[in-house]
């Protein structure tokens, strides 16, 4: 059914080079820091942070919610659901045009346990895992976008990627 590897030709492939020309703006809050680190690690794994040389930058806004569920007879909440939503925009640095404006969404369940601090720690771990999940989704959608853009404009994509290096 027409499947082909997204990252064909490895590092020098269209997708990898396009991804490595994206820098990520600082995102506020602890969740923002975690998502940004996860994105930076996958976007330009080996590069140092010369973000100025990049052709695109990514702006991410996060929304982090914790809901109580599993309300028992004595009205005690026994389970929580942590939802992390991201809205992100890929912006071309020269023209300032927003190339991509999408959302990513993931959630995780947390058991409320006897020790209140253990629940807080579980919420923090859920946040770390969700930040990785959100980063994976954003990277996948950026890769898809780079590939279609690559296919559509085969020639200038390669010029752009070389310029982006």
């Amino acid at each position: 059914c027409g499947l082909k590897p997204l990252y064909a030709d490895g590092r020098s492939g269209a997708v990898s080079s396009a991804l490595s020309s994206i820098s990520v703006d600082q995102i506020d809050g602890k969740a923002g820091w975690l998502v940004r680190q996860a994105l930076e690690r996958q976007l330009n794994p080996a590069s140092n942070d010369d973000n100025d040389g990049k052709a695109f930058h990514l702006v991410v806004k996060l929304d982090d919610q914790i809901e109580g569920l599993g309300v028992r007879a004595n009205d005690s909440v026994t389970r929580e659901r942590r939802t992390l939503r991201a809205r992100y925009q890929l912006i071309d640095n020269q023209s300032g045009v927003i190339l991509l404006d999408k959302t990513a969404f993931s959630d995780a369940g947390i058991d409320i346990v006897g020790s209140e601090y253990a629940t807080v720690a579980a919420e923090n771990s859920a946040l770390e895992n969700l930040s990785q999940k959100i980063a994976d989704q954003i990277i996948a959608q950026l890769a898809n976008y780079s590939l279609n853009k690559g296919d559509a404009t085969q020639n200038n994509a390669s010029e752009q990627s070389s310029a982006g290096e």
Binding site: A108, G109, I110, V113, A118, A121, N129, L130, K133
Partner: peptide
């Protein structure tokens, strides 16, 4: 064990 008491295998921590 103070902070590892709430544990449940989920897709979010499967590959942690």
């Amino acid at each position: 064990n103070e902070d590892s008491r709430s544990l449940e295998l989920e897709t979010s921590n499967l590959f942690a």
